[in-house]
Nucleic acid binder design. Structure first.
Lengths: 155, 155
DNA sequence: GTAGCTGCAAAATTTTTGCAGGCGA
DNA sequence: TCGCCTGCAAAAATTTTGCAGCTAC
């Protein structure tokens, strides 16, 4: 799998682009923040270090990094989020009652992947899947929904 | 499973709300349009019949119908979409190269569901799952991405 | 008749764009 | 030095809100 901190500067220069402090900061924020940071969270983090860094720059930089396939987006709970590409394939179970988010690994979906391949002739993306549902502690409670989104995201 | 056209008017009156022509139209658009209509698509459809129907009303009505659990939302390809609740549980495979969307039924995910339940003590929502990947005809082509969104949605 | 609902318009919010100057290579 | 990038501010796009009048019941 990809290493944790590729040499982004070299990579970008090789592609004819520049490594600027702003891009560096945003990449670091994404690396340090774990996955699933929203644009606002990213903005808050980099702003903390570089208060003059403009919101428009965050929009443009994230667009740029997505184009370059260094960053990927996913929708989690209706929120568009960003994360570095190249992390271990992993997936999440998100409880729609309490919002708890648990990681599961690739293996759990292996059977599904094989089935789709065999029966549907379809190769599913395995980079990152988010499955909504209810965790054991929330199961059985009469409590209703609306705390977590209805949206279930697979990335 | 739920019938295709429940008596929404009676249901809403029973809950102390009104059935207005606007709500009727939006429900019909959702019923006729299949699943995964965006707000704009819904607006366009109802506008075609009732040109004075306001965009703000569409926003408010969809909110209202979601609150009432008559309509559910999902994010497909980064777009928030709406559909009637109470249809057959079904899922989609979406090719990120050509955009083809294929339905698969509940059974295909049954094994995954059981595994998560057993090993993770987690009950996944089964209402509606969208899995991105590549279909057989696009597999093997060198063609790159970006035609379909990176976002994979499970609802 | 009454209260919920809608249309309209304005406001608030979110995202994009133009342009001059700055800075990485 | 060259031209890619950024900050700033304005524009554009999207979503929400206030309010008066209408209408479902």
């Amino acid at each position: 799998m990809a290493q944790h901190h590729p040499d982004y500067a070299t990579l970008m220069r090789a592609r004819g682009f520049r490594m600027t402090p702003q891009r560096q900061l945003i990449l670091e924020a994404l690396g340090a923040g774990g996955d699933h940071l929203t644009l606002e969270e990213i903005y808050a983090r980099v702003q903390h270090i570089a208060p003059t860094l403009n919101l428009a720059t965050v929009y443009r930089t994230l667009d740029f990094l997505c184009d370059q396939r260094l960053v990927a987006t996913a929708d989690v709970g209706g929120q568009k989020t960003y994360e570095l590409v190249g992390e271990e394939p992993h997936h999440h179970l998100v409880c729609r009652s309490c919002g708890e988010m648990r990681q599961i690994d690739h293996a759990a979906l292996h059977a599904l992947c094989a089935t789709l391949d065999r029966e549907q002739n379809f190769t599913m993306d395995m980079e990152h899947l988010v499955i909504f549902g209810r965790c054991s502690s929330c199961r059985g409670t009469a409590e209703s929904v609306a705390s977590a989104s209805d949206t279930h995201v697979l990335h």
